[in-house]
């Protein structure tokens, strides 16, 4: 037999010794080797001693007396406890949700109310500034170019200006009272700026602009004299609304 085969044959020794070798042919070859091969015989004896030694300790792995009588009831008990604990957890979650859902709903309602209130209040005052900032596409960081542009417009329509101004101012006065409610709300937002609050003219101007349509506002603004325009712009700057 070749060396490779002999080495492999040795690996069968533990199974041969413990009677777990199914292959009868290999079994007979091992028997032959044990008889005629000293090295193989020595290996066989050593492994047999080792396995015998291990085997002599096996009984110690037995559990305490009566252990298996109680095992099944213990397992059943744990299964029931697990079920209960799962149910408890679900119940606790339910309880949590019972309180959490109303709290979340209330908080959300509050947030919605506060935001809607704010946006309503802001609308009256901010639309005036938005009118300038967005719709007329003018920045309140007005520079000299803006002023120059408006001056040129003013020069062109100087003759019409006096008439229109008078007409619009009288219209404004009438409309001013109809928007008094909006003004009051706006006041609550501008109370921190006393200059603005006390300046009725400026306030009037803003409100006037608010009630005109876009074209009117643009036209109105452009038709104002430069001094008036600057007053409005300066005051808006003071408000830091830009």
């Amino acid at each position: 037999m070749k060396d490779n085969n002999k080495n492999e044959l040795i690996t069968y020794l533990p199974d041969f010794i413990t009677g777990k070798l199914d292959d009868k042919e290999i079994e007979s070859v091992i028997r032959e080797e044990i008889e005629k091969n000293e090295f193989f015989k020595r290996e066989y004896i050593k492994i047999k001693e080792t396995l015998g030694y291990i085997n002599s300790t096996e009984y110690e792995l037995a559990p305490p007396n009566g252990y298996f009588n109680n095992l099944l009831p213990e397992i059943r008990k744990r299964i029931i406890n697990d079920r209960i604990s799962i149910t408890d957890k679900l119940f606790n979650y339910k309880r949590l949700w019972k309180f959490a859902i109303p709290v979340i709903v209330i908080v959300l309602i509050f947030i919605v109310i506060i935001f809607s209130q704010k946006s309503k209040d802001n609308l009256n005052l901010i639309t005036t500034t938005d009118t300038f900032l967005i719709k007329n596409k003018m920045s309140f960081n007005v520079d000299t170019n803006t002023v120059k542009t408006q001056t040129s417009i003013e020069n062109k329509k100087e003759s019409e200006k006096e008439y229109r101004k008078e007409t619009e101012k009288s219209t404004t006065k009438n409309k001013y009272y109809t928007i008094q409610k909006s003004r009051n709300k706006a006041e609550t937002f501008i109370h921190s700026n006393d200059d603005f609050y006390n300046n009725e003219d400026i306030f009037d101007e803003i409100v006037i602009l608010d009630i005109f349509n876009d074209t009117d506002i643009e036209q109105e603004f452009s038709e104002m004299d430069i001094q008036e325009q600057n007053i409005i712009l300066d005051n808006l700057r003071k408000l830091k609304l830009n």
Partner: peptide
């Protein structure tokens, strides 16, 4: 696996 088993036995044998 057979080789693994054999090597395990040999290691145990050495320690014993």
């Amino acid at each position: 696996l057979k080789a693994n088993y054999f090597h395990a036995v040999k290691k145990i044998q050495k320690i014993i």
